[in-house]
Amino acid sequence: MNLSRTARTALWAMLAAGLGVIYVPLLIVLVNSFNTDRTFAWPPTGFTVRWWEAAWNSTGVRDALWASVQAGLGATAIALVLGTMVAFAIQRYDFFGKNAVSLLILLPIALPGIVTGIALNNAFRAVLEPFGVSLGLFTVIIGHATFCVVTVYNNVLARLRRMGSSLEEASADLGADTFTTFRLITFPMMRSALLAGGLLAFALSFDEIIVTTFTAGAGVRTLPLWIFENLFRPNQAPVVNVVAAALIVASIVPIYLAQRLSGGDAGTR
């Protein structure tokens, strides 16, 4: 390409600066988690692991982490089933309203989270309260599953498009029925797409706070809710910072898995 030397240098510089802007704030959180100063005055005055110990021993943090894991797993399981079903319907069939259905799947992440949040909150209370059931962890799972479907759907749809149907037809010609073909041919071929979509769904759920705020019952506190609750309490600041630092470190795990799973294209929504 015929770009001038200056233009090339400028573009590389902008890329480097952009990546710097992306990473510096995260590094500062990591550094601050070892800062002896309670209010994170910059530059740090000394090194300590005291806050990491305090966070490790905090029952509030542990309970919140467990609630988040449960919500994430539940929402991911539902999203896997629903997302796969829609992806098959959209990819393999032609029907009236196909565009509307694909738009519908997108709607929960396209609309602002607060709208989904209060709509579900309103509906849950109207439907559940007559039965004496109040909001709880399962309402969080339902809320999260609603916007997680799209991640699984996107991954499975892309895989089905690439996969074609010739192998499935061959399987049918050789006498396998629908279920056998699915078990032996279709499912193994889309397994990595399911894992990638599931991983994204879990991450999306694990991180979500707005819909969670409106669908969680009084006793349910996911990790984001815990962080938000303690963010404005000065005496909790070091522990909040450690949880933040730990989450930054933990975010390397899914990206590593996603890369292993599908050779680079797993992370995009």
Partner: peptide, 27 residues
């Protein structure tokens, strides 16, 4: 580079907003 751009997407939303709160705070 794609991995470098993607990685922060997996870091928590709250954590990132929090990072800016710390950076922008008076001290």
């Amino acid at each position: 580079l794609v991995i470098a751009v993607l990685t922060p997407l997996w870091a928590s939303y709250l954590v990132k907003a929090y990072a800016w709160r710390i950076m922008l705070s008076a001290d």
